Amino acid sequence: MTRSGKRFVNESNSYHDFCQAMVARCRAEDGDGTEPAAWFVIDHRAFRKYGLGYAKPAPVPYKALIENGYLLRGRTLPELAAQMGADAVQLERTVAEFNGPAARGEDPAFGKGTTSYNRSLGDPEHGPNPCLAPIKDAPFYAVRLYVGDLGTFAGLKTNSNAQVLDEDGRPLQGLYSVGNDAASIMGGNYPGGGITLGPAITFGYIAARHIAGANE
């Protein structure tokens, strides 16, 4: 959730979709001058079973992460909200609205756990929805989330042979580009894991065949 205390996305979606939603919500709430950021909030049961960011599941100690400010902990949700700089009343309301449906495995607000992609990332031993559980067991924990760089969708424009094209769309003889150096064939979207590796392998193979004249 953002500092407004409200959720803004299906948290089990891809990090690409998550970050796009986070940036859009933060800009809507704070304008363009504030760095987009959100808080990941969980309860003690989930924290010790799954961990949270750099904080690992039990029995790994986590006190140092609280002391250095990375991990926040509150005995109550309002206490946690105060540390987050979030709206405490809205945060409690958000959690209350989330908990009832979550106990039934439902997320009417964002549909968390309703796709095969979501469910593949959840806990297969937890039901009825592997992605959902109420946030109810104190103390409560939070870490702050920022947008980071993982790869690029921009790059050199290429043709179907992985040849780099000039400004007029003509192949530059002897120059090829694949992987993250080439413009993504996904057009700025993230349909699933491996969207950089798959095209890199495929177009590396295509480029090698073209260089060897195997396609002629």
Rank of each mutant, 00 (worst) to 15 (best):
A138V: 10
P139S: 12
T202F: 13
M186G: 02
F153T: 15
P128N: 08
K56F: 03
G100V: 05
T152S: 15
T76Q: 13
L71V: 01
Q20L: 15
E216G: 15
P61Q: 07
A55M: 07
P101L: 00
R45N: 11
D166H: 08
A138M: 06
A82R: 10
A28L: 13
L91D: 06
F47M: 10
G85K: 08
P199T: 09
S116T: 07
G100R: 09
S184E: 05
F203Q: 15
P101H: 00
Q83I: 09
G198P: 08
Y70N: 02
T114R: 09
V9W: 02
G85E: 10
P101Q: 00
A37V: 11
A55Q: 07
G74K: 06
W39F: 14
R3E: 15
F18G: 01
L172F: 05
V9I: 12
F110V: 00
A133K: 06
G127V: 13
Q83Y: 09
D149P: 01
D137W: 02
N159C: 03
G33T: 13
F110P: 00
N118T: 00
V143E: 08
G53P: 01
V143R: 02
G33M: 13
M22C: 12
A162Q: 02
P61W: 09
Y146E: 04
K6V: 04
T2S: 15
R104M: 11
T202D: 13
Q83G: 07
L52F: 05
Q20P: 11
I66H: 06
G148W: 14
P124Q: 05
V147F: 05
P108N: 02
V9T: 12
A208G: 15
P101E: 00
F153D: 15
T76L: 08
L145C: 13
C19Q: 15
I206R: 10
D32N: 08
D17C: 12
R25F: 04
H126Q: 14
L156D: 06
G111F: 00
V147L: 09
T158E: 02
M186A: 10
